[in-house]
Every structure is written in C-alpha cells, then in structure tokens.
C-alpha cells in the first residue's frame, strides 16, 4: 500500500468510524497518569519510563484488534509499508496526528517517526529538578503501544524516543527498529 493510499484510508476511517473524545481530556488524563507515576516512584524517572512503556504495551496488545476491525486492513507486505500504516493510519485514527516517517536505514529495518504535534504533551512542562529534562521520556507510553501492537502481528520491535521537544530538543523523534519476525506458534505436540 502506497503512502498516499494509507493517508486516504486513515482519513476516511477517522472521519467515519471513530468515536471522538475531547483532546484536552486525553491530554489531562495522560498528564495525571505521568504525574502520579512520578510521585509513586518518587522521581525515579527511569522507572517511570519503564512503567509508561509497559502500560502502553498492554494497551497495544488490545488496541491492534480494534485497529484491524476498524480499518479492515490485512497484513503489510514489508516493514516500510508497516511504517506508513502506523504513521498515516494508526496515529491518525487514534490520535488524529500523522507523524512523518523518516531516516530509514539501508536495510529497511529502522526508521524514525517525527512528531510535529503531540496531543499527549500539550501544555506540558517537565519538572524543573535538573533530572527530568535528561531522564524522563514523557510520551514513552507511545513506544509501548507500538511494541504491543506490532508483537500481535508477528513483529518484534524496539521503540524508543531519541529526542523530545519537551526536553528542549528541536524535534520529537521516536526510533523504531525491527528486531525479528515472530514465527507462528505451533500447537503442542507438533514442535
């Protein structure tokens, strides 16, 4: 599926088949989750990153079925197509944003998603304690969501943020790497 077709599908599904909620509600809810985690782990931001990723992962495991049901999409032919689908259909349908796919490696196993806008991070300022700016990946739940959804369609990936506007970087960039294609599980007694 070409990038333009992916964009069209994303737009179409978002317009016709998606129940919408107020964006600020999402922003505030997500913000309170992160703030609560920061309190729970007493400012251990590395642990907060880990927990956000895990929460996202569990969301992703479920979200993929919703995604497939709503978009009626089949398997992607290759990882490039997967990337376009994530950016132009997945993010469009669930968050109404379309990050840019960029910075492919030559083996087609690694790309970046550049977020020009990020509804999770609206109105957000990181704590001014000298550490959050260097340690907290505020939107890390998104990495987990990608890992969870892709695992359910037989792709093990590593996803992490490489930069974030909240930290003072120029862009918000997530790096996604295909680790391996997961084989079908065999029924017991056949392996």
């Amino acid at each position: 599926m070409s990038a333009t077709k992916a964009a069209r599908v994303g737009e179409d599904v978002w317009k016709t088949r998606i129940d919408k909620v107020n964006a600020e509600l999402v922003t505030l809810t997500y913000g309170s989750i992160v703030a609560q985690l920061c309190r729970d782990f007493e400012g251990d931001y590395l642990e907060v990153n880990k927990q956000l990723e895990k929460m996202g992962y569990n969301i992703g495991l479920r979200l993929i079925e919703d995604f497939l049901a709503k978009t009626n999409m089949g398997k992607c032919a290759n990882f490039r197509e997967t990337a376009e689908t994530i950016a132009k259909v997945g993010f469009k349908v669930f968050l109404n944003i379309t990050p840019t796919v960029a910075n492919w490696t030559t083996d087609n196993k690694q790309f970046s998603l550049i977020f020009e806008e990020n509804p999770l991070a609206d109105f957000v300022e990181l704590p001014d304690d000298g550490r959050a700016q260097n340690e907290l990946w505020y939107s890390n739940m998104l990495c987990g969501v990608l890992r969870g959804t892709l695992e359910m369609v037989q792709m093990q990936v590593d996803a992490h943020f490489a930069s974030d506007i909240l930290r003072g970087n120029e862009v918000t960039e997530m790096r996604v790497t295909l680790v391996r294609i997961i084989d079908d599980e065999l029924p017991p007694g056949e392996d």
Partner: peptide
C-alpha cells in the same frame, strides 16, 4: 456432509 468456513485475522486469531 458439512462445510467448514474459515477466517483468520492478521493477529492470528
């Protein structure tokens, strides 16, 4: 005597 219908999702359901 019977017919089996099959559908599989991308998530292997």
């Amino acid at each position: 005597s019977y017919k089996l219908h099959y559908y599989e999702t991308a998530t292997n359901l």
